[in-house]
């Protein structure tokens, strides 16, 4: 059955469905219990699943991820929440040196079915330590998968797959999108990791955008349509494994590519995608790939500065026009 749902509800429905199905799925993190999470994403789950399975932790990010690693290695399927993506840094050792590497280092003797949920992104004047988009830091580490839904349906379907996956999956939630509503069909079920989505079919240029930037790309496409430019927008949904075939098929048709993310442009994950396109599809390109990202600065607080820091539809329009 179809109904309207917020992005936040999509995430919650995904977690709840996974917990109803498998008693080994547990949720823990700071204030995720009775408080329902700092942004209310897990509201009501404490009541439904009880204090055994929905647990508040002390403020101890390193222990939160370390605990998930140990729990996952011995039979639970934890969903561990790190309130803000910026605080992943505090848990980086457990995430990068343990969660990501122990399967490989033990020759596959141990496995780590765990999800790290975390709220990323700017746009709410939360300043430089509560607003970052750190996709590149996560995807750089072999052993971690990463998903980043852009709407409620994907939030739901990707959560089901992330929990079912036998590897550590970092699940990014954009904090400025939590209240965004869209239509969801809960019967549609899991969305496989590594499968992108053509959000808008088109023939003139391929725009690869993730998270909040999908919506900026859609707005740009509307503007460009008036100029007679027909944009194809691809939301990869999973950053790793990445659906490169979908992007390649699109570029075969359009011969132009723009990649967009909210990350600081320098060293962003979209730079990796741009490089893959250039390396593999050089012959079908009519113009250099254009990367669009945030300014190379920490995220500013002021309402006068944050919108300038962030990439937006206007930047996408400009980039498309610059490709001729």
């Amino acid at each position: 059955m179809k109904k309207m749902m917020t992005y936040s509800e999509g995430i919650r429905e995904g977690m709840s469905a996974a917990m109803r199905k498998d008693p080994d799925v547990v949720l823990f993190g700071e204030d995720v219990g009775m408080f329902g999470g700092c942004f209310g994403v897990s509201a009501g789950m404490f009541d439904e699943f009880g204090p055994e399975r929905v647990r508040d932790t002390p403020i101890s990010e390193s222990a939160i991820i370390g605990c998930a690693v140990g729990a996952a290695s011995t039979g639970l399927r934890p969903i561990a929440e790190i309130m803000m993506m910026d605080f992943l840094t505090v848990a980086m050792d457990q995430m990068c040196n343990n969660a990501a590497k122990l399967r490989f280092m033990t020759g596959g003797a141990l496995h780590f079915p765990m999800v790290i949920r975390t709220a990323g992104g700017a746009g709410v004047n939360a300043a430089a330590q509560h607003s970052q988009s750190l996709e590149a830091w996560v995807t750089h580490v072999p052993g971690l998968k990463m998903v980043f839904p852009s709407n409620a349906q994907d939030a739901y379907g990707l959560m089901l797959s992330a929990v079912a996956d036998d590897n550590p999956v970092v699940y990014e939630e954009h904090k400025a999108m939590l209240a965004m509503e869209s239509e969801v069909d809960l019967d549609e079920g899991p969305i496989p990791l590594g499968v992108g989505k053509v959000v808008r079919p088109g023939s003139d240029v391929t725009i690869v955008a993730v998270g909040n930037m999908v919506h900026q790309a859609l707005a740009a496409a509307e503007t460009l349509e008036k100029d007679g430019i027909d944009c194809e927008i691809i939301d990869p949904r999973t950053l790793y494994p990445f659906d490169f075939d979908m992007v390649a098929n699109s570029i075969d048709k359009t011969h132009k590519a723009i990649v967009v993310s909210e990350e600081v442009k320098r060293g962003g994950y979209m730079g990796e995608i741009s490089a893959q396109i250039s390396e593999n599809l050089f012959d079908s390109l009519d113009a250099p790939v254009v990367r669009i990202g945030a300014l190379n600065t920490p995220v500013p607080f002021s309402p006068a500065l944050e919108p300038i820091y962030l990439p937006n539809a206007e930047d996408i329009v400009k980039a498309v026009r610059s490709q001729g």
């Binding site: 300043a127 430089a128 607080f301 500065l305």
Partner: peptide, 8 residues
């Protein structure tokens, strides 16, 4: 200069 806000 408006870059940090309340927390900084």
């Amino acid at each position: 200069k408006g870059k940090g806000g309340s927390m900084h």
